[in-house]
């Protein structure tokens, strides 16, 4: 048997129970010969089968510690088993396994009927992303202070790569905070809010809620629009130019202090 056929067959045997989850493992076909006697082949194959499931489940558990805490071992393992079936790993590094977990929980029963679980998973994945997202030089308040008056209107910004903006409908973050502190979680309830999740300069993760208009403004100014455009955008909301400019300046300073913004090309030229 050629190497490729041998490997394909061996792999099918390892995946067998995952593909037909409710059926017992298939017997090893006679055309894959091993030195181990028949009686112990199934036991040895199970070692590979279990390793596949356990390694992926463990990767999920480390990325979604609070979802695991909320569901408990057995339910979490069942969810993991289904995810492995629907979304087998695609990347060389196991670090990225779990990207589909929030969507899976959102769209499949019994988790679908409790949307806070999927939102909790979304939050944990954003926290995981913040830990090892790309490093990039952030703008500082001192740099902003050096900007010349005529340069302000054309200033552009980008979001730091660690930032995720989430619009959640449920109290998933409160559930996370309780579980993360070892406390009983509150009952899931509707609590619509926008959340910013990011890595601070000191490498610690941060998360905070923000008003919808602030989130819209942040998304607006980090998608190719200038500070002048933002002032015009806010003027549409406030109908008062001084209030719009003041609010834009306050937010810009806050975002800068939080480390959400990157140094822009326009600022480098001017500052």
């Amino acid at each position: 048997m050629k190497l490729r056929e041998w490997q394909a067959e061996f792999q099918n045997l390892v995946l067998g129970p995952a593909v037909s989850q409710d059926q017992p493992p298939e017997d090893i076909p006679n055309h894959l010969d091993f030195i181990q006697q028949d009686a112990i082949r199934s036991q040895r194959l199970e070692i590979y089968q279990n390793a596949y499931q356990q390694r992926l489940s463990e990767a999920l558990r480390s990325n979604f510690t609070c979802v695991h805490e909320l569901l408990g071992d057995e339910e979490f393992y069942q969810a993991a088993k289904k995810l492995i079936l629907y979304f087998p790993p695609q990347t060389a590094s196991i670090r990225w396994y779990g990207a589909h977990f929030p969507d899976y929980l959102k769209n499949h029963e019994p988790y679908k009927s409790c949307p806070a679980i999927a939102e909790l998973a979304q939050f944990e994945w954003a926290m995981r992303h913040a830990i090892d997202a790309k490093d990039a030089e952030r703008i500082t308040v001192e740099q902003l202070e050096k900007v010349l008056p005529e340069q302000w209107a054309n200033l552009c910004f980008k979001l730091h790569p660690s930032v995720t903006i989430l619009s959640l409908k449920w109290n998933a973050v409160q559930v996370w905070q309780a579980l993360d502190s070892g406390l009983p979680p509150p009952q899931p309830m509707e609590a619509p809010a926008a959340w910013l999740i990011y890595r601070k300069q000191n490498l610690m993760n941060a998360w905070q809620s923000a008003e919808p208009l602030e989130i819209q403004a942040l998304e607006f100014i980090t998608t190719g629009n200038s500070f002048g455009d933002l002032c015009a955008y806010l003027l549409d909301q406030y109908k008062d130019s001084q209030q719009a400019i003041t609010q834009a300046a306050v937010w810009l300073k806050t975002w800068t202090e939080q480390g959400l913004l990157l140094k822009s090309d326009s600022l480098q030229e001017g500052g």
Binding site: K2, A8, Y48, Y52, P89
Partner: peptide
């Protein structure tokens, strides 16, 4: 070892058959 074939990522260290073909490959 090998860790997957046909695009699969098994995230496990799977055994090779000890053959001349595998040595060359």
């Amino acid at each position: 070892c090998w860790t997957g074939v046909k695009g699969a990522r098994m995230h496990d260290l799977l055994p090779l058959p000890y053959t001349e073909e595998a040595i060359i490959h």
